[in-house]
Design a protein around this nucleic acid. Sequence first.
DNA 1: TTGTATACGTACCGATCGGTAACACTGTCA
DNA 2: TGACAGTGTTACCGATCGGTACGTATACAA
Lengths: 206, 206
Amino acid sequence: MMPTDRNIELTISDGHASAAPRAAKKILDVAYDLFYRRGIRAIGVDEIVRRAGVTKPSLYRSFPSKDELAASYLRQYDLDFWKRFDEAVDAHPGDPRAQIKAFLTRVGKRTQLPDYRGCGMTNAAVEYPERGHPARVVSEANKHELRRRLRAMALAMGATDADMLGDGLLLLIEGAYISGQLFGLGGPAQSVATNADLLIEASLKK
Amino acid sequence: MMPTDRNIELTISDGHASAAPRAAKKILDVAYDLFYRRGIRAIGVDEIVRRAGVTKPSLYRSFPSKDELAASYLRQYDLDFWKRFDEAVDAHPGDPRAQIKAFLTRVGKRTQLPDYRGCGMTNAAVEYPERGHPARVVSEANKHELRRRLRAMALAMGATDADMLGDGLLLLIEGAYISGQLFGLGGPAQSVATNADLLIEASLKK
DNA sequence: TTGTATACGTACCGATCGGTAACACTGTCA
DNA sequence: TGACAGTGTTACCGATCGGTACGTATACAA
């Protein structure tokens, strides 16, 4: 769940590769944890710097604003998300149905953890409905890419209507993220992989 | 989307039937609209009273706190939600599959509206992850009841595994709420009814 | 007319919000 | 040695947060 060291420079300043200040990493690590677990709006910058053991000026030297810090958190989340996704994909080369099943089995397991808090991307989009908000922009980009990949995988499976199946899988995934944090242990999210496989079976060309 | 007059007394003070002050209704109406469209944490009590044309003491005479006002908003949302749900149910007596299809067709249409903001219950649960928060309590109760009813309907349909199908439908519904506000027009939520029907077909005893 | 209760408004509270100005200290590298 | 980047310190800003003490207006009953 924590950002990895080698990605910090990319995440903090959106691409330029100068050495990242030391304090910035601690700030982003703490912000990542707090934003994810308790929500972005619920956390003030004072709490972040306090728990990171730094001061506010250090935060504002590395991040232009709290909104941009939130966007940086989500860019890190994006990297972590695709790492998990690609692990499932790479485990079953050439078999998109097995890839989906592997990914969703893992999602289903994660939703059953005691303090599961859903998808950081999804949550951020709920917290910031205004179009163009820095955090929302990152979130929307992640979801559009996920949709594109799911539709491509549905096509590779030979679905009767690939876009329909891809979107159906996306709905199940988002539903798992949300109901995972709403119901906790024993909730509907545990059945996401099975339901997805049922939907896939029903969507293949006969 | 607005609370109805006849429900205000129930909603405001959680059951006791004394006459509700006149200002309380305006406050709840305005809070309903603002909380739903822009989020609970994003709206301050000052903005609510200003747009309601009243003053803060009036708010705090009818509602013990902002958190309780949020809970009142969700109690009203609960009434409105079940009204919509039961309209779809009543339109197809004795035919749970058609009931689900009717409800989801309507949900799918709503998600395509320009400023669709998802489900107020779901959004509130994302905004308030702390267990026991007044708003979250209402939200969780609503979702548990929805799960119960969906599972009962799946059973009435004659599903091979009714709980599995009921939970699958819940995942699709929550996915539609979220992706509706994430993708907007043309997003995956428009296909929720079709995907649900596919899943139902695949889940019936052969 | 007066008493009483209820609803409403003015003005204010301390705390926290995101964000900044100014300056001292430290380590690195030329 | 000197320059410089990064960090720390302290103190502060105006705005807004949720919430309240207290006086006033209005309605109805006696």
